[in-house]
Every structure is written in structure tokens, then in C-alpha cells.
Amino acid sequence: MKKNILLVVASILIIFLLMRMNPKGKQYTNQIEALISSPKENLINKEGSTIKDRIKSPKGYKRNTIKNNSFEYYLRNYKLKKHGSEIINYDGSKYFAQDWHDAILEVPVPKNGLQQCADALMRIRSEYLWNQNRKDEIGFKFTSGHYCSWKKYALGYRPKIKGNKVSFHKTAKPDYSKTNFYKYLNLIYTYAGTASLHNELKKVKIKDIRIGDMLVKPGFPGHIEIIVDEVSNEKGEKLFLLAQGNTPAQSVCLLRNFEDSDISPWYRFSSNTPIYTPSYYFEKPVFVRFK
């Protein structure tokens, strides 16, 4: 009994923080029930080691077939940490909200404080291309609009940045190593983010979204989350899983759904309808897709 009371008090404190973070001040009153009770249908397989194996399909839904080497397949089969793993900040401390997630992705968090929300997703995309031997496709635009590719960085070109002016100069020896690749990503984390991804990438209508598409609110910092799996029913209705990095730089986690706990962690999206996730309120949802 005492334990339950403490859990309710902790839940109320978390909801208070959520309300303060929410730009519209939405009342997350249904989160208390979501935090102290389980979904009607148990959709978590604690023994599963990948997204596909850990998260079950809700009744009436199933996963569609996707190509083995596709980005969609890569995300659906992404490795997870042991069930019950916590969200850990880059400095080794625990994040204050440990009830937001149902799984932690196996994405290392650098101790330099970089790799925040957009950065974590750019890393996942870049590592996919690296593993597929499509290294020449790795590249992102800075917030200034200047394109910075891994190919040029590996050749030794480095940016000279003065205000909004960027020029590239060959100042280093060619280095195609994995260590240099992560140095490149640190550069990208510094000069790219939600705003640059929003401006650079193709916008996708909600009816056309798929695994790998990202829900973005551009800004400084803004926020971004990525679809890591989907299921559909006989009517063609779809549900999606969302994952995010965050600020401060921390573990990449698969998000719970407080708005519809019966299907959590799955989400359903509708055109022109706000999307509420544990850490962010997307008043006018915009989805973008990597090239």
C-alpha cells in the first residue's frame, strides 16, 4: 500500500514536469493511470532482444514484409538493451523520467555531451549507410545550408566557419577509418539539428509515412522522433513505434504512449491532429524522410 502511494506521488510529479514542458499546457491527467497500470493487452516480450522481438503486434494487426537490406528492416531489427534498462545521460547520471520508455536502443552515448535528439537519428542513419557500404551517401546540411559529406571529410576537407559563411579547405590527410567517421559525426552534431533536417529533407504526408520517417518540430533546440516499426490491419489502418534521443544527450529510447495506453507503445496518427509523446507536444505534426 505504501509503495503504491509513493508511486502515485512520483507519477504526479512527473506529470507536473510534463505540463511545464508542454507548450500548450495540455493536462496529462490520464498519465497517472497509464503509469500505475499495464495496458489491457501485454505487448511487451521482456526476452526480446530487438524491436521486432520485444514489441508485439496488437490484436488484429501484423507486421508487413520489408526488404532485408532496407533502412526499414534495419530499424525494425535494431538491437535493444536488456528489458528494464534505464535512460542514462551522457555524464552517467540517470534521466529524471524513467517511465517514458519501454525499451532502450543499443546506441552508445558519447561522454562529450553531443548526440542529442537530431544527432542520435543522424548517427543511426549514417551507421546504416556505413554498414551497407553506401558511405558516399553519408552527408548532411549545416543549419547554414552548407552540405558536409563524409566523402569530403574523409579526404581531409574541413569547414572554416565565420558567422553564416562556410568554406571547405583541405587541411588534413585522407582518413577513411571508423574513428575518423565518428569525428565527422561530432562535427555534424555541432552544426546540424532539427532546423537543418526540417529544411533539407522531404516532407511526407501522414497517409504516406513509413518506418524511418521522422516527426520533427524545428527550432533551437526543437525536437525530433523517428518511426522504428509499423503494423497494419485488414482495413489498412496503421500503428507506429517511435524512438528518440533527447537533450541532454542520453540513451535512445522507444517511447510509451500515454495518450492511448491500451495500444502502448504503439501510436496511431491522423492528419491535422496534434501528437503527444511523453517528452514533446507536436501541435502541427510534420514528418520528414532521409534521402
Rank of each mutant, 00 (worst) to 15 (best):
L6T: 06
L7E: 15
V9A: 12
I14Y: 12
G25K: 02
Y28A: 12
Y28W: 15
N30P: 00
A34Y: 07
P39M: 11
L43D: 01
S49R: 15
I51Q: 03
D53R: 13
D53W: 04
K56I: 12
K56G: 08
S57Q: 09
P58I: 10
R63M: 09
T65P: 02
Y73N: 13
L75S: 01
Y78N: 02
L80M: 08
K82Q: 14
N89C: 08
Y90A: 01
G92L: 09
H101K: 05
L105M: 11
V109Y: 05
P110K: 12
P110W: 12
Q115M: 15
I124R: 05
S126M: 03
Y128I: 12
S149G: 03
K151N: 08
Y157H: 03
P159C: 07
I161K: 08
V166D: 06
F168L: 08
K173F: 01
P174K: 03
D175N: 06
S177G: 00
T179K: 05
F181H: 01
F181P: 04
L187P: 04
Y191G: 11
G193H: 13
A195H: 10
H198L: 01
N199F: 02
L201W: 14
K202I: 08
I206H: 14
I206P: 11
D208W: 11
I211K: 00
P218Q: 07
G219Y: 10
G219C: 05
G222P: 00
H223G: 01
I224R: 00
I226L: 05
I227A: 01
V228S: 00
V228H: 00
S232Y: 10
N233H: 09
K235N: 12
L241W: 01
N246W: 13
S251T: 03
C253H: 07
F258W: 11
S261F: 14
S261K: 15
D262H: 13
N272G: 04
I275Y: 14
Y276K: 09
K284S: 06
